[in-house]
Design a protein around this nucleic acid. Structure first.
Lengths: 356, 356
DNA sequence: GTGAAAGCGCTAACAC
DNA sequence: GTGTTAGCGCTTTCAC
């Protein structure tokens, strides 16, 4: 292959004997350029296979036409859908997407903020890693509009779009209580992040309201190995072992909530192996409504997370912030929590075999 | 917030009374700059909160320090893992990642190639959408090294790293035959892409070798709705309905292969609802070994796809191409197909209850 | 309508 | 060691 340097405006200009400037305007479809010249220029550009250099354009325009997306783990189906939605919506607005994966590493998280700053992205959407996270506030203060996704850091004055986990957990738990459960527990991964905290709070609230007290703590912390096995969804095996313990210890709850549907897989197995019937002996409720959840036996009752809605809302909020950036009135951070629906299936119905 | 323009080399230079150039070299840790000056410059840079402008740097260096990744659907768990792996490996080599999602749209696919060209990425990793795809060849000829992922386009002379689906399907089918199956069928989505074609071929080869002939075509094309419901994994419901048809028509095969584990979910349900026992009355084998597959009852026998391995290999091949770019000897395109293992579980064991 | 000149922020040649 | 000059490819003044 011949070392074919890329065609530039200059090449077209030279080839046609006009100025670079004219070529630029012609191709940008600005007026103040003759019909004939424009035609000639466009033809020549096509002939030479001219492709504009986004880099150069961005440099002078001062806008990268790029959004940054920082995700902890694309293999989490919820985040996978966010990626799709955000990329798509950003693209329809003309923005390219720079994706960074942090794998729950505070270090990578910090460097991600730095990378976005260096590239000068026009806006950032971030699922922050657990921990402090003032580097995100610093990014924001550096003049880059940003919105936190799914995980809120209450101590930071940053926009946030996520799920109303508190309400969802509350409703789901109430549903189990109404189904007759009097002793419940909740499996949650041991990450100090807002979704977990909110689900726990909603769960507890429902218990309190129902006048249910338990001897020990009904919240079971699953030492998920997710952080070790990079780039994997949650590990059902972790929940499986804990559920086995519970079963073998004899103090079996009559309902189990899990923070994500993957944990339900482990719980299902532990119960089944012990000869217990899910949805009958023990009710189970999850979070995520992943594709497999409808196909388990029995079907899993679970909270459907409005991923597309959240992705869209986040991008729209970000674009709005980008537009009003530079305006005087610094509006306060917006914390938006989307409500979500509970998908009721046989695992919570004590329904002796009905399948959904 | 004060309209705080970003700090540049010029600002540091002015503030210290040195030339921009010196600042540049000091910060880049080049020699030919005095120890004291360097210290003063670094201190001032830190004080002012200087952040290098990657855009400007890339423009002059002629390298974007960016890789492009084009994916059809991040919600496909296999692709999600590819995204993680590729981002991670690219990052360790200093590259940022620009992600484009094509959603099986030939149009978006074409524009993706254009976008990558405009940004002048240093290399591209692409899961091409079905169809022609000479726009990818054009990108390649424009001087951007690229590697196709998972889907090969044999008519294009492009590097490719993927799965040896042919061999995997062959082995899996043989496994079912050895398990006693004499009448088999294969569920495959109706996309004209190489993975499907190769699995079909491997499946057929195994049948032929076993001397198995069927009256009709054993390959069942699933009109997957994936393309309509953007950003979702495969739809088990599609396979469910087709499996129902097969069951109700009475010509039940004694083994069913499916092109992805999600289809197995549908097949499981159809069989179970008909009172048939998976792994006993009908053997089932899948592709993907998704997290849920081990937790179905019975556990699903399935081909484990080496996603991380493929992601890594693809990036490494790409980096190698990038390094040797400009060299005279144009090496021929490399087509690499990774072997993968079959995870045998109860769905293929006719094992009356053993669970894995 | 078109061209000349300046500059986005940075690095690479050259002088001294 | 350090400064000066030039230029990456593009857009935006401002003359003409």
């Amino acid at each position: 292959m011949v070392e074919s340097r890329r065609v530039t405006l200059k090449d077209i200009a030279k080839s046609l004997g006009v100025s670079v400037n004219t070529v630029s305007r012609a191709l940008a479809d600005k007026d103040s350029v003759g019909e004939d010249t424009r035609a000639r220029i466009k033809a020549e550009a096509a002939r030479l296979g001219y492709v504009p250099n986004s880099m150069a354009r961005s440099l002078v325009l001062g806008s990268a036409m790029t959004l940054g997306l920082v995700i902890t783990n694309p293999s989490n189906p919820f985040y996978a859908r966010l990626i799709s939605t955000i990329e798509q919506r950003g693209r329809t607005h003309g923005y390219s997407l720079m994706l960074l994966v942090t794998e729950e590493s505070p270090d990578v998280d910090r460097r991600a903020a730095d990378t976005l700053l260096r590239w000068g992205v026009d806006g950032a959407l971030v699922v922050p890693v657990q921990g402090e996270g003032e580097h995100w506030e610093r990014l924001h203060e550096s003049g880059i509009p940003m919105v936190c996704l799914n995980r809120d850091v209450p101590t930071l004055d940053l926009d946030f779009v996520g799920v109303d986990y508190h309400h969802a957990a509350y409703e789901a738990t109430r549903h189990l209580v109404e189904g007759g459960a009097r002793s419940l527990c909740l499996f949650e991964e041991d990450l100090p992040i807002s979704p977990v905290a909110e689900r726990v709070a909603g769960f507890r609230k429902a218990l309190t309201e129902a006048g249910i007290e338990s001897s020990g703590d009904p919240v079971i912390s699953v030492p998920t190995r997710r952080r070790e096995s990079l780039a994997l969804p949650w590990e059902p095996a972790d929940a499986y072992r804990l559920a086995q313990d519970i079963v073998s210890q004899g103090d079996l709850p009559d309902a189990i909530m899990v923070g994500n549907d993957y944990f339900a897989l482990g719980v299902y197995r532990a119960l089944t192996e012990a000869g217990l019937r899910v949805g009958d002996d023990v009710l189970v409720g999850g979070f995520g409504d992943h594709p497999f959840s409808a196909y388990l036996s029995p079907g899993l009752t679970t909270v459907r997370l409005p991923a597309a809605q959240i992705g869209t809302a986040a991008v729209d909020l970000l674009l709005q912030r980008m537009r009003s950036h530079g305006d005087d009135g610094e509006t306060a951070a917006e914390k938006r929590r989307e409500r979500c629906g509970l998908v009721v299936r046989a695992s919570s119905r004590a329904s002796k075999g009905t399948m959904t």
